[in-house]
């Protein structure tokens, strides 16, 4: 085992992109002369997730954060770039075994559990598929243990998903994800379908499990309050691109990218500090026809000629990585 193992990121995305074919059907294209249309949902995203940390990806609806999650767990193949897990390219032939070390928790607790399966079978599925245990008795004991671990009781295994509330179902989802003994959990908005009080319970459960089991999380969310609660580092996405990556404290205290500032300014605060805010202006451009240069320039109060023509690269600014010409040129003050 190499010595630098612990310094190596667990997951690494190198200039990953994903295109979706949103063309009209073949016959329409031929008859109407419409061209093929590709939608670039994720565009050149590079990021690293360190062992044991929680990296949150935030952004508006449709910015490609869920697509990043699905690319990592292999639900979609990447169109460009590569994804490494523990230093091995996930697209390589031997990477199938690596996929067992990651699991995913989904957004909608009402759709992510098969309504015709008993909870014990849902939770046991990864154990059975990965053949982690030899006998059914061991499987049953492990399922009971997992259910207790996520705050349910062992008898709940006999029930069907519709007998549970949203929060309980999300606990079942977590139990299922944990049953394959993963190191890395991709959580796609796991709390956005839940009540605020239940959200807190689920988040606490997740942090608790992370500490006990040494898990690494990629946490997708559009809720900045949730992110500030759970994340160690935060990546901000806009129109398929990663615009800023920084430590969570740093990002919330001192946002650099104009888009991050706009997002944070949109959070209402109870203290009425009266600080000047940049109001959220404009709308997200059509992703089929993204603006040239920096994707954010039509909405950015600091955009100039360079922003309209040249695409900014992610450049270190303090401890953060920011893709913004205004920040690199020092045009933007804190």
């Amino acid at each position: 085992m190499p010595i630098d193992r612990d310094n190596r990121p667990l997951v690494r995305l190198i200039a990953v992109g994903r295109d979706f074919d949103v063309s009209r059907p073949w016959l329409n294209r031929v008859l109407e002369g419409a061209p093929r249309q590709l939608l670039r949902a994720v565009d050149g995203v590079s990021l690293e997730v360190q062992r044991g940390e929680t990296l949150a990806l935030v952004g508006e609806s449709g910015c490609g954060k869920s697509t990043v999650a699905r690319l990592i767990v292999g639900l979609y193949p990447a169109s460009q770039g590569r994804i490494e897990f523990d230093g091995v390219d996930l697209a390589s032939p031997g990477a199938f075994a690596l996929r067992r070390r990651m699991q995913m928790i989904f957004q909608d607790p009402y759709a992510s559990l098969n309504p015709r399966w008993r909870v014990r079978d849902i939770v046991a599925e990864p154990i059975r598929v990965l053949k982690l245990m030899a006998s059914e008795r061991e499987v049953a004991a492990r399922v009971a243990e997992l259910l207790q671990q996520v705050g349910l009781v062992a008898d709940d295994g006999e029930k069907y998903p519709h007998e549970f509330s949203g929060g309980q179902r999300q606990r079942i989802s977590i139990a299922r994800a944990l049953s394959g003994n993963p190191e890395f959990l991709v959580c796609d908005e796991p709390t956005s379908a839940l009540d605020v009080s239940v959200q807190a319970q689920i988040l606490n459960l997740m942090t608790d499990l992370q500490q006990r089991l040494g898990l690494t999380y990629l946490f997708i969310s559009h809720n900045l309050a949730v992110v500030s609660h759970i994340a160690d580092r935060v990546g901000v996405m806009y129109l398929g691109r990663l615009v800023e990556t920084a430590a969570a404290d740093d990002l919330f205290a001192r946002p650099r990218h104009p888009y991050t500032r706009m997002l944070l300014d949109a959070i209402p605060d109870l203290e009425m500090t009266g600080k000047p805010r940049t109001p959220v202006a404009g709308e997200v451009p059509n992703p089929l026809d993204p603006p040239a240069g920096c994707a954010f320039h039509p909405r950015c109060p600091h955009a100039n000629e360079r922003c309209r023509s040249e695409r900014p690269q992610a450049i270190a600014s303090g401890s953060a990585l920011v893709a913004c010409h205004a920040v690199t040129e020092g045009r933007l003050q804190d």
């Binding site: 639900l75 699991q103 995913m104 759709a111 098969n114 990864p126 990965l130």
Partner: peptide
């Protein structure tokens, strides 16, 4: 396209 099918795919079915 429901998430339980995606979950099964992630599990490796």
């Amino acid at each position: 396209n429901r998430e339980y099918v995606q979950a099964a795919r992630v599990i490796g079915r």
